[in-house]
């Protein structure tokens, strides 16, 4: 295998990690709350703007322009979006779930769809239509392999994505709260009766989604810019990934994201770059033909 092919594979995998980070939060919220969060792309957007606001020196607090180092801006942006996620749960979604109405999921979906539009137009009005680039995490482009050079920022984003994905998997599979999340996803009543506060699990899911999507948005802003509808394409990819991986399956989402990154990278040079964004759907259709529940999906077993 020559360096060229290897370079394409490496670039594809790097992108796969980034996709996984975006998809994880979506799949967690879906599996816990049964809500397809259409505003997930705007969580991603907010992460980018938050990093920009904190680091670029354009926002002033008490007369002092904010320009903290990007590396500190990242966790702050993540926390900021997580808090926003919490407010969305409290202010928009919880009232729907406690109002004892038929099919709360459908109302919730419409709400998140509205929120998505609101945030996009809000950003348009508040900061304008222009693309912005926050400062770099890792300046310059770095030699990766063969002829492949990539931006330090892109490598940093992939590396931190891998770390955050690892941390999320540990959190889900290695901690009590994570196990309670899984239990809640699989049976809400069954979780309540052992003493799990499922409302708190909803909050946890939204906070986790905020951390991950906000983190992805902030990490990628120096590479892919930030503008009002920046989250639209990533979130569509994330939808494809979670269906491909099996709705609600966390390892499925990670594997599907890596596959998608690879397929897009190789497909766009060996088939045609014009159909780059179509490959996602082709893979999806192909997989669903043979595995209707996705790669890691399990058939719902409900009494």
């Amino acid at each position: 295998m020559d360096y060229y092919v290897l370079s394409q594979i490496v670039n594809g995998l790097i992108f796969g990690f980034i996709y996984a980070l975006i998809a994880l939060g979506l799949t967690v919220v879906f599996s816990i709350m049964r809500v397809v969060n259409f505003s997930h792309g705007e969580f991603y957007m907010l992460g980018g703007y938050a990093l920009y606001a904190l680091t670029a020196g354009v926002v002033t607090v008490f007369g002092i322009p904010l320009s903290i180092p990007t590396i500190l801006g990242l966790p702050l942006a993540m926390v900021g979006v997580a808090v926003f996620g919490m407010l969305v749960e409290r202010g928009l979604l919880r009232p729907v779930y406690t109002a004892r109405m038929d099919r709360p999921e459908e109302y919730a979906i419409i709400l998140t769809f509205g929120l998505s539009l609101f945030l996009q137009y809000g950003a348009l009005t508040a900061v304008g239509p222009y693309e912005m680039t926050p400062g770099a995490f890792w300046e310059g482009s770095k030699h990766v392999i063969g002829d492949l050079y990539l931006a330090g920022d892109r490598l940093f984003a992939a590396g931190i994505s891998a770390v955050l994905i690892g941390a999320t998997l540990y959190f889900i599979y290695g901690t009590w709260t994570g196990r309670a999340l899984m239990a809640t996803a699989q049976n809400r009543v069954g979780s309540t009766i052992v003493g799990i506060n499922t409302v708190r699990m909803n909050i946890t899911a939204m906070v986790l989604a905020g951390l991950l999507a906000g983190g992805a948005g902030a990490l990628l802003a120096p590479v892919f810019l930030v503008y009002p509808d920046v989250g639209q394409i990533p979130v569509i990819k994330a939808f494809v990934i979670i269906v491909l991986g099996g709705m609600g399956s966390i390892p499925g989402a990670v594997v599907a994201a890596l596959i998608l990154g690879l397929v897009e990278s190789l497909g766009s040079v060996y088939v045609s770059v014009a159909y780059r964004d179509v490959f996602a759907f082709l893979v999806l259709i192909g997989v669903l033909l043979f595995r209707p529940h996705g790669l890691f999906g399990q058939q719902e077993r409900r009494a």
Binding site: Q8, S265, S268, V269
Partner: peptide
Amino acid sequence: TSKDFVPILLK
């Protein structure tokens, strides 16, 4: 609407 053009640019 694509975000990553590295594959084709690398080619």
